[in-house]
């Protein structure tokens, strides 16, 4: 069995890297990486790359939580520990591991949500100046904002159980980072940073 902390690191890294690309700290990183990838010099491209990374990590971690839920229902132990970090105890709790409306596992809901966000971020990445792009970014912001009370509900479950599911927390963090990303993309539009002009060296590289 692969060490669960190692797997967790596999989700932390793209989320942190994606977040860095979306913030001011990403400017320096973009500059240093622009030697290898000139397109990263452009703030909007860095921002969308960061968002795509975070959304992909959120989707994969959602698949992972659903996989853990299924394994637990088979009777297996995946990440059961005596400490407060025990996703088996959280995902295996029949009282809390499905949504109260449709009865779907939370991992499946995460997959659907991040799948929809992935469609938005990928589409906008490819056609950032399309007429629908700004609206799509707004839809993404609303979707991730709706996720906030749902995350609060799930955290309240964890408090009730006195256990934390570290993989679920990763998905929650990915949603919050996406909310920030969509909000910042809106700000970039307002501040005129969302233009499609490539730096000169990037133009040469892509030519």
């Amino acid at each position: 069995m692969v060490d669960q902390n190692l797997l967790l690191l596999g989700y932390v890294l793209p989320i942190v890297f994606g977040l860095v690309l979306m913030t001011k700290a990403g400017d320096g990183l973009g500059a240093s990486l622009s030697g290898r990838q000139p397109l990263l010099e452009h703030a909007r491209r860095r921002h969308m790359l960061g968002m795509n990374l975070v959304v992909l990590a959120g989707f994969v971690v959602s698949v992972h939580t659903l996989w853990i839920s299924n394994k637990i229902s088979e009777g297996g132990n995946v990440c059961s520990t005596a400490t407060v970090f025990s996703c088996d105890d959280v995902l295996g709790n029949a009282q809390y591991n499905t949504d109260p409306v449709f009865g779907l596992p939370w991992g499946m809901i995460g997959m659907l949500a991040f799948g929809a966000l992935m469609f938005i971020t990928n589409s906008v990445s490819k056609e950032p100046d399309a007429l629908w792009a700004e609206n799509y970014l707004k839809y993404g912001k609303y979707m991730t904002a709706v996720g906030v009370p749902i995350i609060a509900l799930l955290v309240s479950y964890e408090i009730a159980m006195e256990k934390i599911c570290q993989f679920c927390t990763m998905a929650h963090i990915a949603n919050m980072v996406c909310l920030f990303g969509f909000w910042r993309a809106g700000k970039m539009h307002e501040e005129g940073l969302w233009n499609d002009e490539l730096p000169e060296d990037a133009k040469e590289a892509s030519a």
């Binding site: 698949v63 996989w67 088979e74």
Partner: peptide, 9 residues
């Protein structure tokens, strides 16, 4: 992937 690797009850 989920269907092939898990058999939930």
């Amino acid at each position: 992937f989920l269907a092939l690797t898990t058999d939930p009850i």
